[in-house]
Design a binder for these strands. Structure first.
Lengths: 252, 252
DNA sequence: ACTATAGGTTTCATAGAATGAAACATAGTT
DNA sequence: AACTATGTTTCATTCTATGAAACCTATAGT
């Protein structure tokens, strides 16, 4: 928590650490009163008052004229424009994925389409004894699984053609049936799969769409079919959709 | 610059102010070395070293493995998502802005007032070879430019006072003249500027007023003065006004 | 009307945190 | 080898940042 790192104890600047901790509160909830923050970061009200004053003064925080509470200021946003986007999605989305794993208790994966396959570029595994293991870097066909259907459903017609005409397409999967599913997926905004690719495994997947409106990845929650019943999947779908949407907003 | 406000001098926290000043460097250029920052903010190297360590430790800065220099970290990005107002408007108004750009062929910008400056929170650039480029996140004084005049004209008298009494007010701008312009702008419902802030650039701006009747942003069309002649500006003003009005209706 | 509670603001004496100078380390240049 | 520029560490000293407590509102409860 404080300024230590691998044995060597660098001296960090305490008041700055505290100020940054206050800023971090706003990742969780975007309106805080002085007292709330004071409780959250366990600091004296006067101390928080002065730190908030400083942050507000520099434009990092501002007060909602209505509620009198603090919110993040435009300076924060101004700076965020300069965060280099080259930091890949895998790193960028990791925090959100971890939160989702913690919330649902199941393995969370991130997939992108690569030509006519999908690749798992990030995963956060469930901590339960029985769990879906999800090696990063694994490649899978686009014909099977919830995330496959998302990646195809939100792709351009051109890409969809290529996928469906792929000579490697598994013969047991009916192309017309697949096509019908895509339409339904677009309507409901998420996809499910029950033991399509792996026996005993079910999954819910939602599209990650960037601010320009393009699909950039698919977010999936997967686990044993015993825990992820059809009802359960319908229940958690909104959470997956919402998280995926939030992730998409992070990317231009 | 430091912690003063209307005579009353609250005590801001110095080390935090310094840390935030360091962060603000990254609005200007997104890679800095310790020494560069030290020069920029006029602080001892050791001091900067400790502040940078603290900022890095909390994820607000990170070092580029290549260059060893500092860049903004993902925490900034993460937090920026929670900046409410601006991000929402920026996304919400994008479609309308794009249509306007396509209709007029010139760069379209969206500005909000932040304290005594304005900030460009969204832009859609013209596709012409000669065009106004408009980096999102840029800050400008409220004394110059069409959108400045809109943002001040439709602000509360209290805010207008603050703006006109700002010690940073450019001496070459006559305050009485400015005041006169505001009245005219309120009457005609839009503002223009001809090479006020940038040589060779002219602009037309209109207020975006929400359903509660409050000014929330200024919409501007800007381009080279050669194309945006005074007559041309009068011609397109109704289109800008109408678009801005429609955008305002989208917001409570 | 009085009392209580909670949130926000201000004051102040004091501890100890933050500081700058200077020494040190490392790498690249002349 | 001497020189220059950059980043890192140490340390004594100063004055900044701090928490306690007083103070000010406003709203709610009795």
């Amino acid at each position: 928590m404080s300024g230590e790192k691998e044995g060597r104890a660098y001296s960090a600047v305490r008041s700055v650490e505290r100020a940054l901790d206050i800023l971090l509160c706003f990742a969780e909830k975007n309106e805080w009163s002085l007292t709330e923050i004071s409780r959250k970061v366990a600091l004296n009200k006067s101390t928080v008052f002065r730190l908030l004053y400083t942050l507000e003064n520099k434009g990092f925080l501002q007060r909602d004229p209505e509620t009198e509470k603090y919110r993040l200021g435009l300076r924060m946003w101004e700076l965020s424009v300069h965060v280099k986007l080259s930091d890949d999605m895998a790193t960028l989305f990791l925090p959100e994925m971890t939160l989702l794993r913690d919330r649902l208790g199941e393995t969370v994966s991130l997939y992108v389409r690569d030509h006519l396959e999908r690749v798992r570029i990030q995963a956060v595994e469930s901590t339960q004894a029985i769990r879906r293991v999800a090696p990063v870097g694994a490649r899978m066909p686009l014909a099977l699984g919830a995330s496959s259907k998302i990646l195809v459903a939100y792709a351009s017609p051109d890409v969809q053609q290529q996928v469906l005409n792929d000579p490697e397409w598994p013969p047991q999967v009916d192309r017309n049936d697949f096509r019908c599913q895509l339409e339904q997926i677009l309507r409901q905004g998420y996809a499910t799969s029950i033991e399509e690719r792996e026996p005993g495994t079910s999954a819910v997947s939602a599209p990650i769409i960037n601010r320009s409106g393009n699909l950039i990845a698919a977010l999936a929650v997967s686990g044993p079919s015993s825990r992820l019943s059809p009802e359960k999947m319908v229940e958690i779908a909104p959470v997956v959709i919402e998280t995926a949407a939030r992730m998409g907003k992070l990317v231009k």
